[in-house]
């Protein structure tokens, strides 16, 4: 486990800012204690200082997970968000998409959101903007990337993709063995 280098921090923040914009500041500078990002086995974990200090008692190879896993760095040093980060993305999300109850299951099975399943969408969403996907009951289901702008969404036919799937809470079951 080690702190992120400047470059890694930048990559991480650039990715996070696609979903929560300048709200990253609220993750970095929290009034309820010191929280930090740490890298362990190419994965980025977000944890409080207290948990970090407890985790130091474990050797590197025995430590499976600590705090909340935000995602991992790929071998080409890009950052990929995991569904476990949803707890921190959902409250701060700037752009949201609500899916209709009928399309919820399809999304939770890892499919893209089609126009027919689109319930609501935040105004002004740009194309390829990171969005958090909610059910109509405002339960965060996952996140993805807007395939169309809000404007275009109104015009496209019902079978076209409006949100590309990136991660959904169904992964907690589907990828149970690899998620940490």
């Amino acid at each position: 486990m080690r702190p992120l280098t400047e470059e890694e921090t930048k990559t991480l923040f650039e990715k996070l800012s696609k979903y929560i914009g300048e709200n990253i500041k609220l993750l970095v500078d929290r009034p309820d204690g010191t929280y930090c990002f740490r890298l362990h086995k190419d994965r980025v974990y977000y944890m409080s200082e207290k948990i970090l200090k407890l985790a130091t008692h474990f050797s590197r190879d025995k430590l499976v997970s600590v705090g909340t896993c935000f995602g991992k760095f790929t071998k080409t040093s890009k950052f990929r968000l995991h569904i476990t980060a949803l707890d921190f993305l959902a409250p701060y999300a700037k752009y949201k998409v609500w899916v209709k109850p009928g399309a919820e299951q399809s999304f939770l099975y890892g499919n893209h959101v089609l126009k027919s399943g689109l319930g609501r969408i935040t105004e002004n969403t740009a194309q390829y903007q990171g969005v958090v996907v909610y059910s109509m009951a405002d339960v965060p289901l996952g996140f993805g990337v807007a395939a169309k702008t809000t404007q275009e969404c109104r015009r496209v036919d019902p079978m076209s993709i409006v949100v590309f799937h990136q991660a959904d809470v169904g992964e907690f079951i589907r990828n149970e063995d690899t998620l940490t």
Partner: peptide
């Protein structure tokens, strides 16, 4: 060379905020 695992937390936070400012 990496920063120490448990180092100066306030400094680390300050650096990250600075980075966010630059990115913004």
């Amino acid at each position: 060379k990496f920063e120490p695992l448990i180092g100066d937390f306030s400094n680390e936070r300050q650096k990250q905020l600075e980075l966010l400012k630059v990115m913004d």
